[in-house]
Design a protein around this nucleic acid. Sequence first.
DNA 1: CAGTCGATTCACT
DNA 2: GTGAATCGACTGA
Length: 215
Amino acid sequence: MIAAPDRTPLTRDFFDRPVLEVAPDLLGRVLVRSTPDGPIEVRLTEVEAYDGENDPGSHAYRGRTPRNAVMFGPPGHVYVYFTYGMWHCMNLVCGPEGRAGGVLLRAGEIVEGAELARTRRLSARNDKELARGPARLATALGIDRALDGTDACAPGAGPVSLLTGTSPRVDQVSSGPRTGVAGDGGVHPWRFWITDDPTVSPYRAHTPRRRRRST
DNA sequence: CAGTCGATTCACT
DNA sequence: GTGAATCGACTGA
């Protein structure tokens, strides 16, 4: 008989560790998103670590700003940013307060609430695409900047929480360079995913944007 | 204050 | 594989 997955919420202590330790440890865990329309649960299959002010790829590299302030706050909180004029992406703040570490949630498998997720992800051709990619994951879960700063470890039923769940075996975890990260930030193998999982997003190197033709 | 670009996705060839 | 969409944050003058 197989034991049921442990639905005990992850506590702040889980996130109060170096981000490079937390990031791979999040794989396989289930994130619970509670909304008025119902719950959505996603099993995380791909993440990336961003190591605060030391990391050229991190939003915190040039210090604290109004946008990234939450990253400098206590661990276990949600950092949401808006990008490309259309998308939101979601992080979990890690490391001690002041350290500005974050784990970008890049992809996962919807394990509960797929029906609701489909209504938010009309372009998805199948359920594996519902949360394959960081902005897709945020869209499927109904995440936007209103959730920036939310405590994912708050007691009681918050809008976002994480379950202890079951971690994949160490030999089932792969790592490699982060997706779409420019320059020196792209050298570190700080992207982690569950090997061969079909919901993991495709890797793309950073592509400099073409200059817009001036008028 | 104008210029540049983004931890991306989608439609189309 | 290529290019457009779309806007807020950040940079440097």
